[in-house]
Amino acid sequence: MALPVIGLTTYREHAAWGVWRQHADVLPAQYATAVEETGGVPLLLPPVAQVAAAVAVVDRLDALVVSGGADVDPTRYGAEPHPRTAGWREDRDAWEVALLDAAEAVGLPVLGICRGMQLMAVHAGGSLHQHTPDLVDHDEHSPGGDRYGAIDVSTVPGSRVATLVGERLSVSCHHHQSVQDHPGYVAAAHAADGTVEAIELDGDRFCLAVQWHPETAADVGLLAGLVRAAADRAAGR
């Protein structure tokens, strides 16, 4: 049986490697490694200007990961930018929204990670808390720089997320924004301070998202679950 192909959305940033310093499509290798280690084949999906191409791309995928990255453009949920909201990428927002539209149309398995969860909530008509420390009075979700925060998360009993990762777990996170409203999704996990840390769709389709970074952990239950769903879909084609 062919290995399932998992699309991974990427950053577009100014990067440096060897003698080169130029714009590049990049993604931390942990994402692709985690997909490989759980039985999938990673396929990088950089922002594409012709967003209508998302339909053709999704037709060739067995699952989609909407990766972490910059803030979502607040105009997408009708808000003015908070002073700490910065660096949004209109091209990436448009491309990933088009991918989510195409994925929804065909029931493709989807996993959102960090920014991916926020974009999925906005795509569904929801909104974001633009600077979570304003609400919780601490910086544990994103301690700054290139460091991950370590927080404890409790999953909702009976949720798909709970079946994949258990009742409680300590996670690596790096987000200063969080989900406020998530129409159509149900909350599947929370931090001790009440922050929504996971959302998912009811029903049979694998469509969920988390604020933390499962690709950084030894336990890749979420990615393993996505790859299994992708393999089932591929086998049923």
Rank of each mutant, 00 (worst) to 15 (best):
W20C: 10
H123Q: 06
Q177H: 10
R21N: 11
G18M: 09
C207F: 12
G125Q: 03
E167R: 10
V122T: 01
A150M: 11
L3H: 14
L128C: 03
V35M: 05
L44T: 11
L27W: 03
D193L: 12
V26N: 04
G225W: 01
L108K: 06
G125E: 01
E90C: 12
W17M: 09
V196F: 08
L27P: 00
H138N: 15
G39M: 09
V161R: 01
V41S: 13
E197D: 08
V51P: 01
T132W: 11
A52S: 13
E37D: 11
M120E: 05
I113E: 00
G144C: 14
V220H: 09
A105I: 04
A49H: 10
E215L: 02
V19P: 15
G69H: 00
L208R: 00
Q130I: 03
T163W: 04
G158R: 02
T9E: 03
D152P: 07
I151N: 12
L201N: 02
G225C: 06
S142E: 14
A198L: 04
M117A: 06
G107F: 03
A121W: 01
D91M: 11
L108N: 03
A224N: 05
P47C: 09
L135V: 09
G78N: 03
I199W: 00
L45S: 06
W95R: 06
V26R: 09
D152W: 07
Y77P: 01
A16P: 07
G39V: 09
D25Q: 11
R60C: 13
G112C: 04
A231D: 15
D25R: 07
A192R: 14
G144F: 11
T75L: 09
H182F: 06
C207A: 12
